Simulated assay, not measured.
Amino acid sequence: MIEIPLRRSGYGTVRIAESRLWETYGSIGLLSTRRGLAPWPYAHWDRAARRSLTRAEVTIPGWLVHLYRARGGALPSFLLVVPRPSRGDLTADLAALAAVPAARVREELEQWFPQGVPAEVHPLYADPRARLAELRDFLPRYRRAALAPYEAPLRVATEEDILLRARILATQGPERLLGSLRGRRLSRHGDVLRLHGSAASTRTAVPDVSRLVLVPLVFGRGAPYSASAPDGTTAVAYQAEGAAVLLGEARPPGRRGAADDPARGDRLEILLGRSRAGVVRGLVAPTTTSDLAAALGLAPSTVSEHLTALVAAGVVRRRREGVRVLYELDGPGVALLRHMDNRRRVNAPDA
């Protein structure tokens, strides 16, 4: 378990950033720890990725597999790079891995394995430079084979989650944002944020941080990742919304039909019609009628009509905040998205 103090002076600066490196690690961890028994909604991707890796003759290094299994999917921090404010590609992170000192690798491995570094990981301990070079060669080949077919939906899911969290941060502050990060790998206890690994993992306390970076991962379910930079920045992974994009191929681009013409295979649109389904999907965070209309490209009167019907049905609730009237999903609306939506995984609303 990793404990990160969240005193007010410690997370005055909070930002949300994507990381292709961390997302890649998360997917590898799923393959390494589940051994072909991936949970929903990863099972389809798991089978396709294993077939693709076999055809491409790409094999996960044995020492990396053992690191995942040793700590319930966690990785030592020397493999993780704190995401930068500007959006970069995998190349920049791989270059940072090349600069990791061998002494740091050995020190962290000794902390991870106080009873002695196991034989499976000893190649990394004996020659960190060679093994990290192997990793830098492996990761792009792995990503092309296992993740390239899902590149577009992964990017959309991550960007949508960042927009969702950014809205919460801007309108309700960091306390509410941290409270929205739910999952069995990430929990909050008072002023401490905890990342949970396996039951056998030791407890590690991170010094007070000057900046906190939240990293959304579609493959974040089994990825209790944390890394710190010399300037006091600490990055923490969390499970992003939208992992259901891995259930199948993304909807192909093309001209959309009428506003209420459901897309083939979209169960929520078949049930509600396209525009009303869009309203439901737009309410994963509290919003006003005008903001929702602008986001969906619909007339405010049309959105208002849909909201009135959804409130009457108990799917959406309405509350006043100052001079604004906010709409958000109620419990039945959350259940509807969880069971009918092809794209989103949403948390239950606050009581």
Rank of each mutant, 00 (worst) to 15 (best):
R281P: 04
A200W: 14
P224I: 05
A285H: 04
L193Q: 00
V236I: 04
S275M: 07
A240Y: 01
R221I: 04
T204W: 07
R264A: 13
E249G: 07
R276F: 09
H196M: 12
T233P: 03
L195D: 02
A259D: 12
A229S: 15
E269C: 10
R203F: 01
H196I: 07
D266V: 08
V245Y: 07
G265Q: 08
D208H: 11
V209R: 08
V280N: 05
I270G: 03
T234G: 09
I270S: 15
G257Y: 06
R255K: 03
V192A: 01
R211N: 09
A223R: 04
Y225A: 06
S228I: 02
S187Y: 04
S210G: 12
L214D: 00
H189P: 00
H196T: 09
A285D: 02
A237N: 05
R194K: 12
D231Q: 13
R274V: 04
V192C: 01
A277N: 05
Q239P: 06
S210M: 06
V209L: 15
S228W: 01
A235R: 02
V215E: 00
T234Y: 07
R281T: 03
V236C: 00
V218H: 01
G248V: 06
Y238C: 00
A285F: 02
T204E: 10
A229G: 11
G197F: 03
P262A: 14
A227Y: 03
L247V: 05
A277C: 09
S226G: 05
V206P: 00
L271R: 11
V280M: 08
R276V: 13
V213D: 01
A229Q: 04
S275N: 08
T202R: 14
G248D: 09
A258M: 08
A263W: 01
P207C: 13
L247A: 11
R194Q: 12
L283T: 04
G220C: 11
G254H: 07
S187G: 14
L212H: 05
R281G: 06
L283Q: 04
A258N: 09
I270L: 14
R203E: 06
E241T: 13
P262K: 11
V284M: 03
R256A: 14
A277K: 03
L268A: 03
L271Y: 11
P224T: 04
P252K: 10
T234I: 11
H189V: 02
A227T: 12
R276E: 15
D261G: 07
R256C: 06
P216E: 04
G190M: 02
L272W: 09
D260T: 09
D266F: 08
D261K: 13
A235V: 05
G257L: 10
